[in-house]
């Protein structure tokens, strides 16, 4: 096969660029396969190639499309946002995932149960790891309200999700007997304890004695399907998305939460 020959169905055709033009309301080209996918774009290894406007191509995280940003301007290539490369904010009904004052409020703790005093307060230097399993999967981050209560003096709490303690504060107080809250947006990570790996966790560090409450209000996820409270509303039962496995966001080593 070479330039000028007809395109042969079911064959490998080798040529320079082929253009098909039409001028009607129907698609110029329809690809139809009732047994499988209709199109495959073979990844290119030629990175010197400057694609023309409208070029659709795969990359490591999904699909790219090339466009012009103005007449006479060079082309630009953008990544199409998908479950493989983006995160969206999804609010949930507020859910209490930590309350050091009650047994029920400590149920999600997978580390730090020994850092709570007899009055239900975090001790100074407490480190809590909270398992978010059942609420979300593969969360990149979370929205929450963190509250300090029964404070014994000045102090602060830090909420974070990956790596070591970041050396920052999320909520500060300055006296005993205070009750204070703050909104927080934090990464989520994974954590290993006693040989078990927990894929969706968040941590709280507390510098001085205080009761600590964490109410989750939302998550950053690739798809609302990953949030238990919104899954049913975000896909019909016949949608293949609903049955798809979570291949988009496997946990990487750098997402590991580390005890201070």
């Amino acid at each position: 096969m070479s330039d000028g020959d007809p395109l042969l169905a079911g064959q490998v055709n080798t040529s320079r660029s082929t253009t098909i033009r039409s001028a009607g309301p129907e698609p110029t080209l329809t690809l139809d396969n009732d047994q499988g996918p209709a199109l495959r774009l073979v990844p290119s290894s030629d990175y010197e190639f400057t694609p023309g406007p409208g070029t659709l191509a795969p990359n490591q995280t999904g699909l790219t499309v090339t466009h012009t940003v103005g007449e006479g301007k060079p082309t630009a290539t953008t990544n199409i946002l998908s479950s493989g490369n983006g995160y969206m904010p999804v609010a949930t009904p507020p859910t209490r995932v930590l309350d050091t004052r009650t047994a029920a409020g400590r149920a999600r703790l997978i580390d730090g149960r020994g850092d709570i005093d007899s009055q239900g307060r975090a001790v100074g230097g407490a480190f809590f790891v909270i398992n978010l399993g059942g609420l979300v999967r593969s969360a990149q981050g979370l929205f929450a309200t963190v509250t300090a209560t029964k404070t014994a003096g000045s102090g602060y709490a830090t909420v974070w999700g990956t790596g070591e303690w970041p050396g920052t504060s999320t909520l500060n107080w300055w006296d005993k007997g205070q009750v204070l809250s703050n909104g927080v947006l934090s990464e989520c990570g994974w954590y290993e304890v006693n040989g078990t790996t927990y894929n969706d966790v968040v941590a709280v560090y507390v510098s001085a004695p205080a009761g600590i409450v964490l109410d989750v209000t939302g998550f950053l996820v690739p798809d609302p399907l990953y949030v238990a409270a919104t899954a049913a509303r975000s896909a019909s039962a016949v949608s293949p998305r609903a049955a798809a496995k979570a291949t988009a966001t496997s946990r990487r080593p750098e997402h590991k939460l580390v005890r201070p």
Binding site: G10, V12, T14, P27, L29, T30, G54
Partner: peptide, 27 residues
Amino acid sequence: TTSLRPSEPGQQMLALENTEGPALRLA
């Protein structure tokens, strides 16, 4: 499967152009 392959590296393989409607439909 019907395949289009470049005869030289770096070539764009297929251009679809429709001045009055969509260029491509995936059933």
